[in-house]
Amino acid sequence: MSTTQSERLRGLLEPLVAARDLDLEEIEVTPAGKRRVLRIVVDADDGVSLDACAELSRAASEKLDESDAMGGNPYVLEVTSPGADRPLTELRHYRRATGRLIKAGLADGGELVARITAVDDEGLDLEVPGVKGRKPTARRLAFDDIAKARVEIEFNRKAAGKSAGAADDESQEEA
């Protein structure tokens, strides 16, 4: 029974990741000159701290040194969290993006930009922003209707639970 390097690495590293209450999102081995780069991407509901990445990196390095999963060739180990532009592909990704603005490519070829308000096993409840002063509208989107989706980066996003007036009041109090 033959297994791929990726499967061997996943079997070796997944217990280390799970022991730290993290999700193993991706394992990638890419050539980089005479070396290879082993990139381990992990995530958690509350995000991943730099300290958690460093701790996992040390534990993974020890485990990899004890095994032959990377063979005899030199490699560079990177432990990271997913970037903001990571595709949303799993139910947990959508749950973690609740409250965020997403851009979804639809199975019928259309495209939708909306904020996730709730997630369940079948799909998403969304708030579609109003255009030209119109009020936002609610929409239900089944996972089967989504071809691909990503979180949209918002540079001027209001803090959750604050209205524009409340934010203005706070800034005036600080002045």
Results as ranks from 00 to 15, higher is better:
Ser57Gln: 01
Gly109Thr: 13
Ala118Thr: 03
Arg8Ile: 02
Asp65Val: 00
Gly83Phe: 01
Ser81Ile: 05
Asp108Ile: 04
Gly71Tyr: 12
Ala159Gly: 06
Lys148His: 13
Asp43His: 13
Ala84Cys: 05
Ile153Met: 12
Asp145Ser: 12
Glu127Leu: 12
Leu88Val: 02
Glu28Pro: 06
Glu62Ile: 06
Ile153Cys: 02
Ile153Gly: 03
Ile40Arg: 00
Thr98Val: 14
Val131Gln: 05
Arg58Ile: 07
Ala18Ser: 13
Ala54Lys: 12
Asp51His: 07
Arg115His: 11
Leu88Asn: 06
Ser61Gly: 12
Phe143Met: 01
Ala18Glu: 15
Ala167Asp: 13
Gly130Asn: 13
Leu101Val: 04
Glu122Pro: 01
Ala166Gly: 09
Arg92Leu: 06
Ala142Asn: 01
Leu24Val: 04
Val131Met: 03
Glu66Leu: 15
Glu152Ile: 01
Asp43Gln: 14
Glu90Gly: 12
Gln5Leu: 12
Asp169Ile: 08
Thr98His: 09
Leu64Ala: 11
Pro129Lys: 03
Asp144Gln: 06
Glu170Met: 04
Gly99Ser: 15
Leu16Asn: 15
Arg157Pro: 02
Pro74Lys: 11
Ala32Thr: 04
Leu106Gly: 14
Arg10Asn: 05
Ala97Asp: 02
Arg39His: 00
Val17Gly: 11
Arg157Tyr: 01
Val76Cys: 11
Val128Trp: 06
Gly33Phe: 02
Gly11Glu: 15
Asp169Ala: 15
Asp65Glu: 10
Glu170Ile: 02
Gly110Asp: 04
Leu91Asn: 05
Asp46Met: 08
Phe155Ser: 02
Thr30Gln: 13
Ser49Tyr: 13
Glu154Phe: 00
Gly72Cys: 04
Asp21Trp: 09
Ala175Asn: 00
Pro129Ala: 03
Leu13Cys: 05
Lys132Asn: 15
Gln172Asn: 14
Phe143Ser: 05
Ser6Ile: 09
Thr80Tyr: 11
Ser163Gly: 08
Glu173Lys: 13
Glu78Trp: 13
Glu26Trp: 02
Met70Val: 06
Gly161Asp: 07
Ile40His: 00
Gly123Ala: 07
Ala149Pro: 01
Arg134Ile: 01
Asn156Trp: 07
Leu126Gly: 08
Tyr75His: 12
Arg140Lys: 09
Val128Lys: 07
Gln5Glu: 15
Asp85Tyr: 07
Pro87Tyr: 09
Ala59Cys: 00
Ala160Lys: 10
Glu7Ile: 11
Glu7Val: 10
Pro31Trp: 03
Arg8His: 13
Arg100Phe: 01
Glu152Gln: 14
Glu66His: 15
Val113Lys: 06
Glu7Leu: 11
Leu112Asp: 02
Ile153Glu: 01
Glu170Cys: 02
Asp145Gly: 04
Arg157Cys: 02
Arg157Gln: 10
Ala104Gln: 11
Val29Gln: 13
Gly161Arg: 09
Asp51Gly: 10
Leu9Pro: 03
Ala44Arg: 13
Asp168Trp: 00
Asp45Thr: 06
Gly109Asp: 14
Leu77Thr: 06
